[in-house]
Design a protein around this nucleic acid. Structure first.
Lengths: 226, 226
DNA sequence: TTTCAATGAATGAACATTCATTCATTTATT
DNA sequence: AATAAATGAATGAATGTTCATTCATTGAAA
């Protein structure tokens, strides 16, 4: 009785507590992303994370089961953010298949999603994805939805071009693969390429895969629109 | 004097020792590659490496300055092997630009170079390349030569197609990027793609980037030739 | 309204574990 | 027999985790 009452009553202090809790969780995750990007998964210590978050080491266990759980949460966070960014772009795009596909690509080279810091984290986790099943699960979970989305976008463009929509799977793989490969350039490229230059290359990839829509994928200064 | 003498005189026992030394170094490097592929850079211990090599932990310090030096040697080993494989393919190819470019791509999906084990190692190091300058150096060193090679190959194909050879840099980046992205599929793909299927996709990428030579890049069962 | 007791979040020093390195001993080679 | 190489147990530095203590916040009592 009283338990149910407590749960159902959204008393202000409980809400404040909840908010505070979320904030601190978020701070820890952001700190973790910073550390992974700068030090790598291997050299990052809980002391580093705590310092970056401006918290005490002990506080970590208040919010996460341990360092590994925090790592997994960080991976999930960037994967979730990426998915959200894609959804955002698609929502902002019109109905034209080519425009929608362009929006999808824009998500990769977004000021937030495409920053070196984030990309470094992706590669840090990919570097251990074979060895660590928990990272594998997170990736596979997100990939499932992601792959379906891209394939549908590609299929629409193919249909518009009166090409075989059966090809969508293969072309979608080529498209995402080249984006990930371009991301790698952010980490190893010498001299360091700008995010913009990679974004432009991704557009060239689009034009190469869908020559009939090449005009839609022409790079113009000032892209992306957001 | 005597030092020079020793170096110059190839007495049999010294040669045997040298050979033995190389063999054991190689065994340690192979063991390291196995461990990195299976356990990741983080979880691999020197005990794991020693066990995999069938040696004692103490022996490692006989051959390498420490674990990090062994790691760096392992990275250098796969980079060197990859370069050798490319050179091999180019030597085996004829003079036709498209055939040479095809040979270059074949090197990525080679039975040795393209095996999951090797690719996992690449990604393990890329995951730390921003954090570890010594890995960065090795990568940059090899990349320099590699990038020049690809660009030249691409430029030749462009010239043959009477297209602007100035584009070679951009197209070369798109080509290598998509190969690395396809490699990633080997690690995260679900269901696991075969090396062959990725090889075929790489050929599609070639055909997309160089439509005038599409016939040269058609995938046929039985490829690669080696 | 003011005071006081109760709560639990935050902290960081202490602890236990893991692991790279070292080196005295053993084994093989000349 | 002398020399060099290989070994692996011992060592201690590094680091993730734990938990007793502190302290701000909240709600009851005066």
């Amino acid at each position: 009785m009283s338990l149910v009452k407590v749960i159902n009553t959204p008393n202000p202090s409980a809400m404040r507590d909840d908010r505070r809790r979320r904030d601190r969780e978020r701070r820890l995750i952001e700190a973790t992303l910073d550390c992974i990007a700068n030090l790598g998964l291997r050299e990052t210590t809980v002391q580093d994370i705590a310092a970056a978050a401006g918290m005490a080491v002990g506080s970590i266990s208040q919010y996460f089961e341990g360092k590994e759980a925090l790592y997994t949460a960080a991976l999930d966070a960037i994967a979730t953010e990426f998915a959200a960014r894609v959804a955002e772009r698609l929502a902002a795009a019109g109905d034209a298949p080519a425009e929608r596909l362009r929006g999808y690509i824009d998500a990769y080279f977004d000021a937030s999603t495409g920053q070196r810091r984030k990309v470094a984290v992706w590669f840090a986790f990919w570097g251990e994805v074979r060895a660590q099943p928990q990272y594998r699960s997170v990736c596979e979970e997100h990939d499932r939805a992601h792959d379906a989305t891209v394939e549908a976008l590609v299929a629409d463009v193919l249909r518009e071009a009166r090409r075989d929509p059966t090809d969508a799977g293969a072309l979608a793989k080529l498209l995402t693969s080249s984006c990930y490969g371009l991301w790698l350039e952010l980490l190893t490229g010498n001299p360091k390429p700008s995010r913009e230059s990679l974004h432009a290359l991704a557009y060239r990839q689009l034009a190469a895969l869908f020559p009939s829509h090449a005009a839609d994928f022409a790079w113009r200064e000032g892209r992306p629109h957001a």
